[in-house]
Design a protein around this nucleic acid. Structure first.
Lengths: 292, 292
DNA sequence: TTTTCATTATCAATTTCGCCAATCTTGGTC
DNA sequence: GACCAAGATTGGCGAAATTGATAATGAAAA
């Protein structure tokens, strides 16, 4: 017998209804079908899955143990169906969403991520603000952003939903700068920068001296400085430009860096459009992004 | 027009196939249908969702922007369908799975969590080992466990899948013990205990003196000691017995404790039965558990 | 035990609905 | 302007689900 690759969701709906109503006849009422139809639907479902789902013993209908396992999955499928329909039939979104993100994320991941959303909703305008994480959080707290993607540190910002995780690596344009004997020359963003703190803390813990040779608010500016051999910097592994070199900590005696995490925070009350964007970002990243 | 609450997944399958094959006719081949059937299926789907999904312009079929959004959800629904069928038709599981968990988790969450699994698979035997996290990890590394649920610290054990997160609180049976003026009397498990480390580190950071008045490997033993007013201990918020009191850090000047996290680690090669149990645990906790 | 009641299973008739095959329409190409 | 490739349409067929009625089942009441 050929096993189909999909199950008629109406059968799943019937199954859930029977369990929740505690009987075929009551479920039939809820499903606006005859009792016999429900009986046959359950039979078809059981045949299709090759498992007995319901224990029809004395006076009470209960799911079998296997049935209970299936039940959870069935509910999940049904809710996704409903969501699919609801979203598809939803009136066209419009309005402005104020989104904040660190510059590196905004320039590497965000464009591709948001492209299908903005194309699907041409009347929605995104206002993207690029700043350092701590500045983003300040702006967000002041009500200046609907959604913010921020770098998460163990010491703050534990609220929000984690949407991204990535390995942090040491990077340079000229390996020679690591071995000068003097303090390690660092290129990074100005003070509230999370990576800057991450790097200096790791170096301090190791007792290795360092100095900031170049501090620039622009990511492209930092890249250029590193490329010119001014010093080393810290970047998420997948955001390293091709012409820069990832340094092997073990070989050069540099401290290991903890992974970076990006979390999404959103205002407690959110317009429908912003809410949809938030759901979209979380959803897309949880699929396309790296596994936790 | 009545909006159904489910979509025929065959229509979704057709939609995905058309997008992936780049045409109706090619998709028809893959779906083992005629071209006209595919055409009608897409038409039905578009009518049902009230959205145009495909741009049939010159020579090439492409999803519309709305179509792209739907596409992701459709793929997800289809994969859940396949998973449902695969699991339902899977031969009966059997064998032994060696599972390790901290005692508190094993006594509070685990039984309810595992009950439907073991009832659905009567020929599976679970061998549950309760130990302190570090001992569990040692046993796991030695190959003595298939799956381990362990408390996760920022300083170690960052691998694995996080399956639980919970607020950690100070607990006592007699509020008087906090204000004795002397060092804070602690009740906890022996040395490798994660909570013990968490508590003493937090107190040290605050500069508050402490001493361990009672150290017991059994959770019930610790509870009894606390209940008897021997001292305070640290517990996940939802695992506090009803007859013990949660202390308000702010009022009593106790340090705030970071949340506790439980992660699941599993052996690189796992028998089918263990693999299914692992998936089940992750799946159930991600639903029933607290939101991250 | 027998009766009764409530429930699910089964059956035949009917209707609905999707598929096929052939044909029409469209838009790009030579 | 004819040709070609690909999707849209249409009418008839056939499979499958629903219905409504009836049979079987099993528990409680008489």
């Amino acid at each position: 017998m050929a096993v189909p690759s999909t199950v008629d969701p109406e059968l799943l709906r019937a199954f859930v209804a029977v369990v929740e109503c505690g009987g075929f006849s009551q479920a039939a009422g809820r499903l606006l079908r005859g009792q016999s139809a429900v009986s046959l639907q359950i039979k078809r479902l059981e045949e299709c899955l090759g498992v007995r789902l319901l224990e029809r013993s004395s006076r009470r209908v209960q799911p079998t143990p296997e049935g209970e396992l299936i039940l959870g999955r069935a509910r999940r499928i049904l809710s996704l169906h409903e969501e699919l329909i609801a979203r598809a039939r939803e009136p066209e979104l419009s309005g402005v969403v104020r989104l904040g993100a660190p510059e590196d994320f905004a320039t590497t991941r965000l464009p591709r991520l948001l492209s299908s959303f903005v194309r699907a909703h041409p009347r929605v305008a995104l206002e993207v603000t690029c700043e350092l994480t701590l500045d983003l959080l300040a702006r967000f707290d002041a009500g200046g952003l609907d959604i913010a993607l921020v770098k998460r540190e163990p010491t703050f910002g534990l609220e929000g939903t984690r949407v991204w995780r990535e390995q942090l690596v040491w990077v340079t344009g000229d390996k020679a700068v690591v071995d000068t004997g003097g303090p390690l020359p660092l290129v990074c963003s100005p003070i509230p920068c999370v990576y800057r703190g991450r790097a200096t803390a790791a170096l301090d813990a190791q007792g290795r001296p360092w100095r900031v040779v170049y501090s620039c608010g622009s990511l492209a500016g930092s890249h250029a400085a590193v490329r010119a051999g001014l010093g080393v910097t810290v970047l998420p592994k997948d955001m390293v430009p091709v012409d820069l070199t990832i340094l092997d900590e073990a070989v050069l005696g540099l401290p290991l860096l903890k992974d970076t995490e990006i979390a999404l925070v959103s205002a407690p009350t959110l317009a429908l459009t912003a809410e949809r964007l938030r759901d979209f970002i979380i959803r897309e990243l949880e699929h396309g992004g790296p596994r936790t």
